[in-house]
Amino acid sequence: MSRTPTRARALTRALAATAATGALLVSLSACGKADMTKQASPFAAAKGSKSVTLSVQTWVGAQANVAVAKYLLEHELGYHVDTVQVDEIPAWDALSQGRVDAILEDWGHPDQEKRYVQDKKTITAGGGNGVTGHIGWWVPKYWADAHPDVTDWKNLNKYAKQLRTSESGDKGQLMDGSPSYVTNDKALVKNLGLNYQVVFAGSEAAQITQIQQFAKQKKPFLTYWYEPQWLFNQVPMVEVKLPPYSDACAAKGAKDPQSIDCAYPTTPLQKYFNTDFAKSGSSAARFLKNFHWDKKDQNEVSEMIASNGLPADEAAKKWVDEHPDVWKPWLTKK
């Protein structure tokens, strides 16, 4: 019984201390407005002044861009670089808030572009990164070699039976990946009258694992995929021809996404910057504006990361050492 008062007093003191700390923290920030769209990460570099935050998307091509940009920013320009993994559309939001300074590879998001670049002007377009992206449907090469006519969509129904899985029931399985990726596959299957079921793997990781698994057993599969992608080096695939892409078809699709009945376009991949960052005139902003390479370079780095298991930093160093002719101009060009 004699112990309890001290304990209680200690408790009061602890409570009071916590309350005081909380009040102090709030009051520290409470002098006026607190725009949370302008707040940095608590884990940002302590030095503060020379730091850049880059968005890394989940696919390895994007990781290769960021790895090389990060390496050069740190070793040639003396910046501290933070990377954040964010899905594509939330990345636009983070970019407009300044939590991220740059996206180095975007596959085309017209809605977001209109909102943030044209209307709110919080994001500035940064030009292409030099790589062209293409989305499509692909089958493994070993299967296409045995059945050459599978590479035309008109013959797909003939093969639906071979592509059945427990998830697709009595239809063939068309495997899609992450829900965040650009896809019209459900509309395509319906509008082209295909006897297929779109099965979403749920994440790119799950999709890659499944493709590797199929390939190991030399089983046939049909998948939504895109290039440039390092997995082609491990599992060679052949694209299935869909009805050709046309502007008229794209315009129709923009009005009603359910009506699309042609292939995906070929997209020059774009860079986007936070407007404040782009206008800052810092050497990092200039460097990222000049960042421009091609599919071969990107794949070289991607493959070192993904299939040779090199840490991104080391892969970037290796590429940087071998290709000064490509990156030197990024530093000097105005």
Binding site: L25, S29, A30, A34, P42
Partner: peptide
């Protein structure tokens, strides 16, 4: 905004 700021400050 203040809430978010307080979080950032204390974690930092």
């Amino acid at each position: 905004g203040h809430l978010s700021n307080a979080v950032v400050l204390s974690v930092r």
